[in-house]
C-alpha cells in the first residue's frame, strides 16, 4: 500500500497511529529499503503534531514532511510542504497525517488527484471516548462527513479507543463494539486496532480487526502529559 491517508476527530489518536504505523513499516524487514514518509498536514492543532517526532523517527529512516520552514513546531502557519506529493508519485510509502475533523481533512483537496491515482487506503481513526464520536451513529455521521468533504471514499476504520495513559482492556473491548457496529453500517472493515502491548497480551485473541498495531508507550506523549 503506497499511500495511507489517516483522518479522525480531534483526539482520536491519528498522529499516534501514523507514527506507530510508520514504525511498523520501517521495521518490516520484508519490505526492503523503500523509504517511509509521514506527511504532517495538520493545520488544526498547534501542539502534538507528528513533526514534533521528526528527529526521533529519522533514526528509523522515517522522514516527516511538515511545513517547509524546517518543521518548526513553534509556528501555526498553514504553510504546508507539498514535497510529499513527489513521493506519492514516486510510489513511496507515504502516510498522510491530517488535522482533526472535517476542517483538517479539507487540505486533501490540494493532492486529491495524486492520492486517487496511487494505490491508497483512507483510514478513519475512531475513539468512542471523545464526545463527538461517542456513539455508533455519531461515528457513521463523522465518516460520511469526511467522505463528503474530501471526495474520497474511506476504505477502513481504526479502532483506537483510548484514554491516553489510563486506557484499560475493557476500554478497548467497549470501543470495539461501538466501532464494529459503525463499520458494519458503513460496510467497511476494521482495518486496524491499536493498543498498548500489555493490553494486547490480555485481549489479543478477542480483537476483530484485520491488523493490530501495538506499542510499548505513547510516542506523542511524555509520562506527565
Amino acid at each position: 500500500m503506497a499511500t495511507t491517508v489517516v483522518t479522525g476527530y480531534y483526539g482520536s489518536g491519528k498522529t499516534e497511529f501514523c507514527v506507530n504505523l510508520a514504525l511498523k513499516l520501517a521495521n518490516d524487514a520484508g519490505r526492503g529499503k523503500r523509504p517511509v514518509v509521514i506527511a504532517d498536514l495538520d493545520i488544526i492543532n498547534p501542539y502534538f503534531r507528528s513533526r514534533e517526532a521528526a528527529e526521533k523517527l529519522a533514526q528509523y529512516g522515517i522522514t516527516v514532511m511538515g511545513d517547509h520552514l524546517d518543521n518548526n513546531t513553534g509556528q501555526d502557519l498553514p504553510a504546508l510542504s507539498t514535497a510529499f506529493v513527489a513521493r506519492i508519485r514516486a510510489g513511496d510509502d507515504v502516510i498522510i497525517d491530517l488535522g482533526g475533523g472535517e476542517l483538517g481533512a479539507k487540505v486533501l483537496s490540494a493532492c486529491r488527484d495524486d492520492i486517487l491515482a496511487s494505490s491508497h487506503e483512507f483510514l478513519c481513526v475512531l475513539n468512542p471516548f471523545r464526545p463527538e464520536t461517542d456513539s455508533t451513529s455519531k461515528m457513521v455521521g463523522f465518516v460520511k462527513t469526511i467522505e463528503h468533504t474530501t471526495g474520497i471514499d474511506v476504505s477502513g476504520v481504526v479502532n483506537n479507543g483510548h484514554m491516553l495513559h489510563d486506557t484499560t482492556a475493557e476500554d478497548i473491548i467497549y470501543s470495539q463494539e461501538v466501532v464494529q457496529q459503525a463499520a458494519s453500517m458503513l460496510g467497511l472493515p476494521i482495518s486496524y486496532t491499536m493498543l498498548r502491548k500489555d493490553i494486547y497480551g490480555k485481549i489479543g485473541g478477542r480483537l476483530l480487526s484485520q491488523q493490530v498495531i501495538t506499542f510499548e508507550k505513547l510516542q506523542m506523549r511524555q509520562s506527565w502529559q
Binding site: P46, Y47, F48, M163, L164
Partner: peptide
C-alpha cells in the same frame, strides 16, 4: 499554560 489548554485527559 498552553499545554493544559491543548493536552487531553480523561
Amino acid at each position: 499554560d498552553g499545554m493544559l489548554g491543548q493536552m487531553m485527559e480523561p
